[in-house]
């Protein structure tokens, strides 16, 4: 464990908590893409499938973190699609998730480190996570704005994988550890946030709201 991965995971936890708080406190999921949350839930379930395959003692934090990620993302989907369904902005959350899932699944079968079920599920989860934020960014571009709290969520979500890139640089340099698939997908994922990061740093930090030219 290094400082970059630690802060990356903390940033990821913060993102999940910010979103849950926003939906719970405002009792509304306006401006939140349900599809992105579904894709994240799929990512966690396919990536941490080992939790279901054999019971693991919960003593170590990593297993607890995996359970937190899975349960929090499933609970977020429950809030969006059931509890606060009336506030779900289905019309603007219109990016076809199939266009993300099918290519990620296909690519996972073609490019992976080992052709076995668990490894392909993990690879699929990595590829899907890289593009899972697209429906959310698409929704913001359609509505032309993002609530400040949603911007904070996106900043934390984007920072998590950006910090993981620093973690991979650190591990390459000190542990000569390289996981090409995770690195390439992580770089693609972070690049997708660049436009948002620019808007966040130039606007939200100054207290303005993000309003895209509609």
């Amino acid at each position: 464990m290094n400082i970059f991965r630690l802060f990356g995971d903390l940033s990821h936890l913060a993102a999940i908590a910010i979103l849950l708080l926003k939906i719970w406190k405002t009792r509304s999921c306006a401006g939140v893409s349900g599809k992105t949350q579904l894709l994240f839930a799929v990512c966690f379930i396919t990536r941490y499938i080992d939790l279901f395959l054999h019971f693991v003692s919960l003593y170590n934090t990593e297993k607890v973190m995996k359970l937190i990620y899975i349960s929090a993302s499933v609970f977020t989907c429950y809030l969006i699609f059931f509890k606060f369904k009336a506030t779900y902005d289905g019309n603007h959350d219109s990016m076809r998730a199939e266009f993300l899932i099918v290519p990620a699944a296909g690519l996972a079968c073609l490019i992976n480190t080992k052709f076995d079920a668990i490894e392909i599920l993990w690879t699929f989860s990595i590829y899907l996570e890289a593009v899972a934020i697209l429906p959310q960014l698409f929704l913001i571009s359609k509505t032309g704005e993002a609530e400040t709290i949603t911007s904070h969520y996106l900043f934390a979500q984007g920072s998590y994988r950006a910090l993981y890139i620093l973690n991979w640089i650190y591990r390459y340099h000190y542990e000569s550890h390289v996981d090409t698939i995770a690195i390439v997908a992580g770089v693609v994922q972070t690049i997708l946030y660049c436009d948002f990061f620019y808007l966040y740093i130039t606007k939200v930090v100054k207290g303005q709201k993000i309003v895209l030219p509609a």
Binding site: R5, D9, H12, R47, E62, M65, K66, Y69, T113, K114, I118, E119, W122, Y164, N167, V178, D179, T180, I181, A182
Partner: peptide, 10 residues
């Protein structure tokens, strides 16, 4: 190494 089945990152 990449082929390690057990992934040590979240």
């Amino acid at each position: 190494d990449e082929t390690s089945a057990v992934k040590d990152e979240l």
